[in-house]
Design a binder for these strands. Structure first.
Lengths: 220, 220
DNA sequence: TAGATTGTTAATCGATTAACAATC
DNA sequence: TAGATTGTTAATCGATTAACAATC
């Protein structure tokens, strides 16, 4: 018995990171009425390697690409959205309704990507029971019970460093499986919990490093 | 003639990304009065590989580690802050004073990391000439001239996708060398300009993927 | 000294890129 | 058909991890 298409080709994290760019790009093409696209064209426009793009598309597309013509845009969009999870809405909670937390609560991009922030949590008295972008702010003490009760599996952490690990522990206790961590520390979690670090300080460091090199170069 | 310490060991992007975590961690230790730290201890607490930590520390530290004892915390902190550019303030501009832009303008973490956002730019009439966290909002038309005049080399892009490339071009015209891109598209830039993508959609995709796998696993 | 930790050299791993025959 | 583009197999590249002698 052949096991065709049952085991999807595993996609590397890097490849997964490129997907939203492909998706955005080919959606633009679709708007212009274009129906097919070939890897070399995408590669040129997005500044990527041709073979890399081809491999990425092959990994995600259910239909094969046609030599000379490329892939059907319609298929690609569907497959990518499916892969990226846009078709089934995922509920999430956010802890830490400071400036960054508020910004994320108001960020329209999430809805498009199939994520819905159900509630926010904070410990500041002034914030509790207020609403931000239509989302109620609850005391952190209710975090794990709410997650458990509503079957929520994604948690977003936007609290300061010294509170992040505690919040993380409470999320895990509430059944959270994937954590998006905006605090500047590495969280310790049990096996099976994924933590994705959105590391502002690191990004800044990399830019800063480049800047240093460039300015030095300029001196010589 | 020996060329000692003149050419610093090149640090990979990944290693650079780990630095802020090391720095935060050893600063905590310093607060507790600890003066020395060894790689295996850091590795255990941060969930990293021992050898990796040792290599990272060796790459950044000006003094050598002592067998049995490890590295001097004071030295490490100084060297890391130096490397990460915390000691010399870098001016930056931000374009796009929407919710994310506002959050970044108010984010205290940047000052600690040696970055100072000098001004914000937007095209929305209601925002121009207002102040956000003490920073004036100017019309985008002034972007490149302001950058040029104030010798600013870092630009932060928090505008929607369809405006991002235009803003990027204006930044480059203004002499910006490092761009922190929060928009969901890949920017095209001349050689020598570094773009760091803060890719929300990608992060979400990776979390979402993990969640899908975990929930499926749970079914079986 | 004994043992932990260092720095370095080699092996492994995974992703990207190159080469090329197959195909529309 | 000719030529562009595909999918696949092999080579390259870079980072992580392992192995080990040197050292405090």
């Amino acid at each position: 018995m052949k096991n065709e298409k049952v085991t999807p080709i595993a996609l590397s994290t890097q490849a997964l990171e490129r997907m939203p760019y492909y998706l955005h790009y080919i959606k633009q093409l679709q708007k212009k009425g274009i129906t097919q696209i070939a890897s070399p064209a995408i590669a040129a426009d997005l500044g990527l390697n041709e073979v890399q793009v081809r491999k990425d598309l092959a990994a995600v597309s259910s239909s094969k690409g046609k030599p000379k013509a490329g892939f059907y845009i319609q298929d690609l969009i569907y497959n990518m959205e499916e892969l990226l999870g846009y078709h089934n809405v995922k509920d999430a909670v956010l802890v830490g309704a400071g400036s960054l937390g508020k910004a994320l609560l108001s960020y329209k991009g999430f809805e498009i990507s199939g994520m819905h922030i159900v509630a926010a949590f904070d410990n500041q008295d002034g914030l509790i029971d207020t609403e931000i972008n239509g989302k109620k702010v609850l005391p952190v003490s209710k975090l794990s019970s709410v997650c458990r009760r509503l079957n929520i599996h994604i948690g977003i952490i936007t609290v300061p460093a010294n509170q992040a690990q505690t919040v993380c522990d409470q999320m895990v206790a509430g059944g959270i499986l994937a954590i998006w961590n905006f605090s500047p520390i590495r969280l310790t979690t049990p096996e099976g919990i994924m933590v994705r670090n959105e590391n502002m300080a690191a990004s800044l460091a990399i830019l800063s490093q480049h800047l240093k090199d460039k300015l030095k170069e300029h001196m010589l």
